[in-house]
């Protein structure tokens, strides 16, 4: 069960799920407002991240992931090491 990941890996995952170029997924680009992601894609991203990392997020933690920076912050608060 990997307990570390990187911003690059998360960005690639988001790019794949959201079907948008990886360079558009900056730390502060809001999933819904800026990237045009819908709620199903957002949940799909969260679940695939959980599967990759082998961890379960709470509903509040999942809801708090509004952009890539937010997702990284939640993972760090759970004690994961997130590299660049």
């Amino acid at each position: 069960m990997p307990q570390e990941t990187s911003a690059t890996r998360l960005r690639e995952l988001a790019a794949d799920v959201f079907d948008v170029p990886a360079e558009e997924i900056t730390d502060g680009a809001a999933f819904y407002e800026d990237l045009g992601v819908d709620s199903l894609q957002k949940v799909d991203f969260v679940v695939r991240m959980e599967r990759q990392l082998g961890l379960k997020l709470t509903d509040d933690e999942a809801a708090g992931m509004r952009d890539l920076g937010g997702a990284i912050a939640v993972l760090r608060s759970r004690g994961l090491s997130v590299g660049p």
Binding site: V17, L40, Q41, V43, D44, V47, R48, E50, R51, K56
Partner: peptide, 13 residues
């Protein structure tokens, strides 16, 4: 084969 909650949501609809 996976833990509950890990099913890919996009497949559902």
């Amino acid at each position: 084969t996976l833990d509950p909650g890990f099913v890919a949501p996009a497949l559902g609809p």
